[in-house]
Amino acid sequence: MNLTWLDADSRAEAYQFYHQFMPYARLTKKELLGVFFAGNLSEKKIIAAVRLRPIGEYQLLTGMLVHPEYRGQGLAHQLMFNLQRTLNTKPSFLFSLPELTSFYQQHRFFENSEITMEQSPKIPAEITQLYKRYVSKGKQLYLMQYQP
């Protein structure tokens, strides 16, 4: 399955997809937004999506979402596989729910405590501040970094 990157003017269906299945998500035009489509050209629908949010010279993987009817078919793994080239372009991070850390570890994301100082001497302040803001709201999240 191929990941299709949507430009800022072609996202109406993606906004509806997120609104339906992840209503708290706040999409911005600055983010890269990639989707998997199912169906034929005239009746294609989004079945999975992922966003990469630019933060200074870094990027934050966020909003990975698979349509409930398509879960359990490996689409999240396919999304991650399709993201590898993009993740290699600049330092990449994500904030993982506890139950998803092992999934992300399968795709070369590691918790800060698992990364040696040679691999990552310091988590950037921009990422750390955003992470602390989420955690201060009571969310249990793990800060993970991509290691190519």
Rank of each mutant, 00 (worst) to 15 (best):
M1P: 12
L3C: 07
T4G: 00
W5C: 08
S10A: 13
Q16N: 12
F21N: 04
R26M: 10
L27M: 14
T28S: 15
E31Q: 15
L32F: 12
L32M: 14
G34I: 04
F36C: 02
A38F: 05
A38T: 12
N40Q: 14
S42R: 08
I47L: 06
L52T: 12
P54A: 05
Q59D: 03
L65G: 09
P68V: 03
Q73W: 08
G74I: 04
G74P: 04
L75P: 02
A76Y: 00
A76W: 04
H77Q: 11
H77F: 02
R85P: 03
N88V: 05
F93D: 01
S96H: 03
L97M: 09
L97A: 14
E99W: 07
T101G: 03
F103E: 06
Y104V: 06
Y104H: 10
R108Q: 12
E111R: 15
E111A: 10
E114S: 14
E114P: 00
T116F: 05
E118F: 05
Q119M: 12
Q119R: 13
Q119T: 10
P121G: 12
E126A: 15
I127C: 04
T128D: 12
T128C: 08
Q129R: 12
K132E: 15
R133H: 14
V135N: 05
K137E: 13
Y142C: 07
Y142N: 14
M144E: 05
Q145M: 05
Q145L: 00
